[in-house]
Design a protein around this nucleic acid. Sequence first.
DNA 1: ACGCTGATGAAG
DNA 2: TTCATCAGCGTT
Length: 200
Amino acid sequence: MTQFKPLPPEFYARDTHMVAQELLGKIMVRRWRNKILSGRITEVESYVGEDDDACHAARGVTARTKIMYGPAGHAYIYLIYGMYYCMNIATERTGFPAAVLIRSLAPAAGIATMKKLRRTTKLHNLTTGPGKLTQALQITRSLRGEDLTHSHHLFVVDDGYPVTSHDITTSPRIGVDYAKHCALYPWRYYLKDSDFISRK
DNA sequence: ACGCTGATGAAG
DNA sequence: TTCATCAGCGTT
């Protein structure tokens, strides 16, 4: 996958929902200890602005959320429930807080290594969840703020896999029941025919 | 259904 | 400084 160029800043510096849907079918690549760990993106969610009560930026800029306010294409990574990392990519213009959460992948390269990192042999349990895929691709706090448009350690490429709007289903976002009316927004996007979805 | 686990940010 | 909360996961 390294023969493909990383998606450029212009790809990410657009409307978050457009970026989210266009990320579906792309390949997320992680280079770790000279190994390539990668997977096709099958499920994502949009988090958009301070008016979105589900977005961490709903309470304004903080030490943690400042990445979402920064340049598009940088990694917003945070620890959740004390154990798992979630991987997001900042979108839109600098100064406007928004990001796409990567929720699920279909494993591509480095599957044997991913099985060791996840302590499981089941292909379908390697990367089908935001906490699972960061574990499988060894995405941790060392990659916080990483610029995915220039990094050699973490980036996204287009290998030509075709996705149209007919391949995409929406639903409310997972795990944001606290977000009042925003919890109902259909801002989760996934490939409807994929076997690698966090939940149906 | 529940426990694990610790960073985060708001309150004091 | 304390404290409730949490974009999950695995086992029961």
